Amino acid sequence: MILGMTTNNARFDGKVALVTGGASGMGLATARRFLDEGAQVVIAGRSEERLREAAEALDAGDRVLTVSTDVTKSADLERLAAAARSHFGHLDVVFANAGAATFKHVEEFTEADYDHVMNANLKGVYFTVQRLLPLLREGGSIVINASWTQYRGFGGGSVYAATKAAVASLTRSLAADLADRGIRVNAVSPGYIATDMFHAAVTSPEEIEAVRARVPLRRIGTSEDVATVVAFLASADAGYVNGVDLLVDGGLANTIVL
């Protein structure tokens, strides 16, 4: 167990959770959290090599199913749903985590850049939920990965931030749409989290220190920080929490560092 994490090892006993973008970062940490708390887990990701490495790192045998999936492609999502149904029969939790980021000034952004980010972060999330709904049992839970950037103007990240605002709005509408099935839909909005995507954008020690200084808690978050909150939202502990977006950002969006 990661130092500082606490688990209730029974919260997901008998449950099946699916995580997109699950081969690394927040997705992998959340998959590990679900496993630690008793779940069986489906991990979807684009890279078969990274999926193999993730399965080896999790070391959970047939409690883990990996499926190579590009969430922007309907055929891949259909194959993901079929594999999950064949292996586990149903789902109880979906963490729609897969996404993409391109950070450029608005004058440099191309139509291809736009399509790449929009397709991964909005279309991919929407159709992930739609294609997996037939497998999701009554009383299940969906958690969508949004971002703190929806709350503040974010220079260089206009399209990325727009997609995250869109999926936060989608969260509320889906919560209303699926209420008759008792399916709760919530979002988590991470701040600066030390993932591969973060380190691809923030490269030098000076840049990392500047980012850290903006966060009121004076640290960059970990994937485990997010996994803990996703597991809470997906669990019965959050049984009366529906249609919310929960910031996991160390205070970045709502406070000012003096």
Results as ranks from 00 to 15, higher is better:
A100R: 12
A101Y: 02
L133V: 11
G99E: 03
A101S: 11
A23Y: 01
A31S: 14
V93K: 05
A39W: 06
D62C: 05
G140Q: 09
S24P: 00
F109G: 00
T66Y: 04
A84I: 08
Q130H: 15
R52W: 00
A29G: 12
R63D: 14
R46L: 08
N97H: 07
L77E: 07
F127H: 06
E56L: 10
L136S: 10
Q40H: 14
V117M: 11
D70N: 13
G38S: 13
E56T: 12
L80I: 10
N121P: 09
S68C: 11
L77Y: 05
V129G: 06
T30N: 05
I43M: 01
M118Y: 06
R50H: 12
V71P: 09
A112Q: 13
A96D: 11
G38P: 01
E138D: 15
F34R: 07
T20W: 01
L132C: 08
G27R: 01
T72C: 06
H90A: 15
A60N: 03
A75E: 15
T30W: 03
D70L: 02
G25N: 08
M26A: 06
F34L: 09
E56G: 02
S141T: 11
R50F: 03
K104W: 10
A60K: 07
N145A: 14
L91A: 15
A57Q: 13
T66V: 15
D59I: 00
I43N: 02
D92K: 04
S141W: 11
V125L: 02
D92N: 15
T30V: 04
L80V: 11
E138S: 13
E78Y: 06
D59R: 11
G45H: 03
L58K: 00
V143K: 07
V64T: 12
K123E: 04
H116M: 01
D70K: 01
H87C: 11
V93G: 08
D113H: 07
L122P: 00
